[in-house]
């Protein structure tokens, strides 16, 4: 029983998403982007499961995708809590900030000096103040008795 062309193309799309997620999780250093890449891999697997479900004509693949969604939600919650704690300890979202956890025989990652970024910092327009600022007490404005 040869799979239909739609099933095969769905499998190819799933393989592409899985590969892109793998490349992201291997190469990026921002913890949040690494977790986004892991979610991309889960999406690729979900597309493959749905394709196989279509091929075999039963609901097993789709039911599995429902559980993949559930586990992804749990995983994202716990992972983000860990990321927040890591940020509170080191002040960076950098995976290399935790390289003291590496194997003892591996060399230490040392960041080279980066060339200065030539990306313009974002500038936002400012409205010119119009009229005369009336007299007001900024402290009194904080004590609002009626809101």
């Amino acid at each position: 029983m040869t799979p239909s062309p739609l099933v095969l193309d769905g499998l190819v799309v799933g393989a592409m998403l899985l590969t892109l997620g793998l490349v992201g999780i291997l190469s990026r250093r921002n913890l949040i982007v690494m977790f986004l890449s892991a979610e991309l891999m889960l999406q690729g697997i979900s597309v493959s499961l749905v394709s196989w479900s279509r091929h075999h004509g039963d609901w097993g693949g789709q039911v599995l995708v429902v559980f993949v969604l559930t586990v992804a939600a749990c995983e994202a919650a716990l992972a983000l809590v860990f990321v927040l704690q890591a940020f509170a300890r080191t002040g960076r979202l950098d995976a290399a900030a935790w390289q003291s956890l590496r194997e003892s025989n591996l060399p230490r990652t040392i960041d080279l000096e980066l060339p200065a970024s030539d990306a313009e910092p974002l500038t936002f327009p400012r409205l010119t103040p119009a009229g005369v600022e009336p007299d007001h007490d900024p402290d009194a404005a904080l004590e609002r008795e009626h809101v």
């Binding site: 190469s27 990026r28 250093r29 980066l114 970024s117």
Partner: peptide, 9 residues
């Protein structure tokens, strides 16, 4: 953008 967003492993 932080410095670690501009490099990859």
């Amino acid at each position: 953008m932080a410095a670690y967003d501009r490099v990859s492993n």
